[in-house]
């Protein structure tokens, strides 16, 4: 990261063609103003909070940090977060591929409506998303009494948390794949079929390799959101310690118990997840770019 920053700040010594020509060169103060503005924004809004999380987490030393993370309720929160992501991400992967396939490769009535509706979870507030599940599956909700009679628990239990997670992470994979598959068109698949490949073979050998970087990128974003979601999950969780708290909810609970070091220790796990996501994302972008360059 430091390397990237310094190349941003000093890498312009050689300058681009635009910068070398007096006619197209911005005045020096404009350049430094814009650079300074964006870098200080970055430092204040991104870098500072990130550093603060780790400083607070380690304020009472590594011992407290490890204890906070190995406490049973924290482990339960980690486990629940992993379970929710392990169910939500593969389901949204399947959905995302099939939706993108349908939209990119077929013509059908209501296609535009579907494309728009896929984005719904992005445009609706997560709290509303959570409340919808309470209205549908809650004891006073549409299916509430039926579920109660059959002793099936959805909200305030793991299934509700998984449902809410699926809802908020719904668009990530599809959004990533639709433009990609639309731009690739159907020619390669048609060629494969003409050459005698079966449908499944075409998918595995032609389509999947073409979309794999986009797909991975979508999956990573989907996973990051699935593990980090707070609002919708908070509404359907019931906040039972050690049972229905995901990592973000656990952070809030521990913070409210004046256990600030522990709260930030758990928060640092989420921050690490974010950093890891960024690194993976960068690797994938580089790989994808080199693949495009080769082709």
């Amino acid at each position: 990261m430091a390397g990237a920053l310094s190349s941003l700040a000093f890498g312009s010594v050689g300058g681009s063609a635009f910068e070398r020509r007096a006619a197209t060169r911005d005045p020096a103060w404009v350049k430094w103003l814009i650079l300074g503005l964006s870098l200080s924004f970055f430092a204040i809004f991104i870098l500072l909070p990130l550093i603060a999380v780790f400083v607070e987490a380690l304020r009472k030393g590594w011992g407290t940090y490890i204890t906070a993370l190995s406490e049973p309720d924290a482990l339960a929160a980690v486990r629940l977060t992993l379970i929710a992501a392990a169910i939500a991400v593969p389901l949204n992967l399947i959905f995302g591929v099939s939706a993108a396939w349908a939209i990119a490769k077929y013509q059908f009535r209501g296609k535009n409506a579907l494309t728009t509706l896929i984005d719904l979870p992005f445009s609706v507030s997560p709290v509303v998303a959570g409340l919808v599940f309470v209205l549908v599956f809650g004891a006073q909700g549409w299916f509430g009494s039926w579920l109660g009679d059959h002793n099936i628990r959805i909200i305030f239990a793991v299934p509700g948390i998984v449902l809410a997670t699926i809802f908020v992470t719904f668009p990530f994979v599809a959004r990533e794949l639709i433009p990609l598959m639309e731009s690739q068109g159907r020619e390669e698949e048609e060629a494969a079929i003409v050459l005698g490949a079966s449908g499944l073979q075409t998918f595995w050998r032609v389509t999947l390799p073409n979309i794999k970087w986009g797909l991975l990128y979508g999956v990573i974003l989907c996973n990051a959101r699935a593990m980090g979601e707070f609002g919708a999950v908070s509404v359907v969780s019931g906040h039972i310690r050690g049972q229905t708290n995901t990592l973000p909810l656990h952070v809030e609970i521990v913070y409210n118990e004046y256990n600030f070091a522990a709260a930030f220790a758990v928060a640092s796990l989420l921050a690490l997840l974010a950093l890891f996501t960024l690194i993976l994302k960068t690797i994938i972008e580089v790989r994808a770019a080199s693949q495009v360059a080769k082709a």
């Binding site: 809650g138 004891a139 006073q140 109660g148 628990r153 305030f156 019931g238």
Partner: peptide, 8 residues
């Protein structure tokens, strides 16, 4: 409210 909505 949460108990009314079904928290057991």
């Amino acid at each position: 409210r949460t108990i009314i909505d079904g928290l057991e």
